[in-house]
Design a binder for these strands. Structure first.
Lengths: 126, 126, 126, 126
DNA sequence: GTGGTCTAGACCACG
DNA sequence: GTGGTCTAGACCACC
């Protein structure tokens, strides 16, 4: 995994785990890989992992069981809410940024479609 | 202006000036407000402004004239290129993030349209 | 039983058994439930139970008889002393904490009375 | 300051700062002593202080200003709510613990009064 | 000078 | 073996 050094690593790990849960790679009730395992896989320090997990635990997305491990909550409401929040935040950020470039809503959609088109062409020729 | 404390302020200021140029609020050849003026307007420290401007100068987007001030480059190619980069970067980030949530390209466009729809309704009822 | 994850579980179990003895649920001479039984009832690991019991044995509150089990001491002086200690500790902690909030002794009593009043009202309406 | 090694130090520091705010030693808008200063005063590591402050910032009780310091929120509603929570939690804990010893509400009040009485006598003879 | 982030490494609580 | 807490110390961003 690559990190953007403009934002804290612990924050990127938080988002990474959010995504793993949203996509179902980590299902409700699943055990999250051990802290030391994640530290190895992502090549970051154990404490940095802990900090990311602590925030997810605080949000109720993960639950910690002492000596057993960390688990994805089985409360699907919490997960559904998180998913909505993540997507909404992403779209809102895109909207704000493009609006800040004086783009009208219809132009944004067109730009995204054009981008996807270009990208897919690029992939076809790889 | 509000800052996201998850990313460096100097970097947000860089992007802010990029946007001012793209939208034409700052046209080619225009003088950029004095450092101390920007520091007041944005309520950040002078050094932070300096750092953002230094980066823009390095990129050739601004040109510094000793004793006179900083000016937007008159090289419209540089500006056009920057504009493309900014928009492309924004769309790429959105694409990557949504793809990371297992969203298909068509879904991304639909989600953005839905978001805009919801947002406009919200604004109508404000 | 629910545990406060801010304090060691073995310590909370110690206090739990203290309370069982003080209330008479466990009388002098009574056999304490088997370690494995307690582990099941309280849903904690056997080792954690052992650690709590070891401390109570050290204090003379329980006596261990090899091959038979653990028993509440018949030395009522020890129990009486423990009871006094438990209550005194509780009141002292409350006093210290409220005093740390600049509350005068009379206010503490009033606050406790008010709390009990509110609580009983709440229970009446449940 | 002395720490109870049964609960995390960062948590005790959190409560310590809560109390400083409740008693007015730290008023709304006041700057909290520098992290490194607190670390010296309380003789704990800087990171431990950071962890306590991070939680208070998350709760909106403190606000952090990059490069300037940490400040007590000027939102007195947040502080008032925190104060109520702290006192309520303290009384609830006392109530639960004494109820667990089979004490009736009236006895609790009597016990607290007796404790205060004894304590004041002790102080008179010191 | 002030807070923020990360690393390395140790030790404890629990299973 | 697994997570939780703490320490020591470094380096960065910002004022």
């Amino acid at each position: 995994m690559e990190f953007d050094d403009k934002v804290p690593i612990y924050y990127q790990i938080e988002q990474y785990i959010d995504r793993e849960i949203i996509t179902g790679n980590l299902a409700p009730g699943d055990q999250v890989p051990a802290v030391r395992q994640l530290a190895l896989t992502l090549t970051v320090n154990v404490n940095t992992i802990q900090r990311a997990l602590a925030e997810l635990i605080r949000q109720g997305i993960l639950v910690s069981e002492r000596g057993k491990g960390n688990f994805v909550t089985t409360d699907t409401m919490v997960i559904a809410k998180m998913k909505r929040r993540v997507i909404e935040t992403e779209l809102a950020k895109t909207y704000e940024h493009l609006a800040g470039l004086d783009m009208a809503p219809a132009e944004m959609v067109a730009a995204l479609e054009a981008y996807i088109e270009t990208r897919e062409e690029g992939e076809r020729h790889e």
